[in-house]
Design a protein around this nucleic acid. Structure first.
Lengths: 192, 192
DNA sequence: TTAAGACTACCTACTAGAAGGTAGTCATTT
DNA sequence: AAATGACTACCTTCTAGTAGGTAGTCTTAA
């Protein structure tokens, strides 16, 4: 991918996080980079295609992130904490005030089908990883679940996205940590 | 409010729940009722005004709902169960596949200011009611909290909205009940 | 009791601008 | 020479909103 295409993807990501799929246009992107709308169509012929590219890039980045997390520490609890802290940081400094796929999921029935499919792909990726790490934590004796890892992963995911929505709705980034920390504490065997 | 205005508000509510603020237009409404766009402007001069009317109507309805809930039963746990079951029903039969304010909150930074204010108003309403009912449950000895009722209310709210997002993202209405039930069980003293 | 005036809900016709997208051109680079 | 990435110059459709008009209803008062 060319550097311009990469910049377009990065900026689109920000714009979607702000206002969703229908909340931005090629004109917004053109203005930000001082180029014409037609030049954007050269890189991404359709809006749906551009947005799918943004989601897929995000998914690829997350897979890399997970890989480096797993090579960084074999401890499940530390991996989950790193995940949580990553989002705390992003929401706090507004580099990513909301999960891209989260905003899109909220308007899922109104999205072009190919975009909806990509969004659902992200949710599945994340759920599977959480299920895997939670099962690992149980095995390591640091996590205690009241349900199967599969159910707990969905529960965890709901807590993270719910917490994000709270932070946004109340315009208070600290709400994210408040909710997620309280939630995660309950899962930990050595919780304070 | 005239009956046409009421119909417009009701339909707008559905359209927002589907695709958010930027996901519908006056043309959509005009088509559904077989009237002209200009006629809609007669009832609601601006889009932001229409959407604020929808949110405010919803808020008023919820206040009525809460009042009837409280006159129906003085038991906090039953009130919370009624609230949860209301949403289970709505999501299942798709009369309201998502909370109106929830969709809008996801795109909050991209909304006209007056709409954003109304959305935040709803979140505050709900949070205050939850705080009140949870405190009542503690008093009645049927609910046990690990935090203050104020914190627990935010936690509860996050679980509900997170669960809604899961149901939508996975296109599986049962996910809502799954998450919310697991969450609520932990708060109940006599939980199975 | 009936006519005037105000009000309601809709209409046609229009606007400026934004939306997503296309066709063809023109420098650079490789 | 040929691919790249930008350009100008369009197009069509949609968007929110306006101007002005019409037919019917409701209120009031001679």
């Amino acid at each position: 991918m060319s550097s311009t295409a990469e910049k377009l993807v990065a900026e689109t990501r920000q714009l979607i996080m702000k206002g969703g799929y229908h909340g931005f246009s090629y004109a917004d992107l053109a203005e930000r980079f001082g180029i014409r709308k037609a030049s954007i169509h050269h890189h991404f012929p359709s809006k749906a295609g551009l947005v799918v590219a943004v989601i897929e890039q995000q998914r690829a980045e997350i897979q890399k992130h997970i890989a480096s997390l797993e090579s960084g520490t074999p401890v499940a609890v530390d991996q989950l904490l790193a995940y949580i802290n990553y989002w705390k940081q992003c929401i706090q400094d507004e580099t990513a005030p909301f999960c891209l796929a989260g905003v899109l999921a909220a308007e899922l029935p109104g999205l072009p089908p190919e975009v909806a499919v990509a969004v659902q792909g992200h949710f599945n990726d994340l759920r599977k990883w959480l299920e895997h790490v939670l099962a690992l934590g149980v095995q390591q004796g640091t996590i205690r679940l009241e349900n199967s890892p599969a159910i707990a992963a969905e529960f965890f995911q709901a807590a993270v996205y719910g917490a994000m929505l709270m932070a946004r709705a109340y315009k208070d980034p600290s709400k994210f940590g408040l909710v997620v920390d309280a939630f995660f504490r309950r899962m930990r065997v050595d919780a304070a």
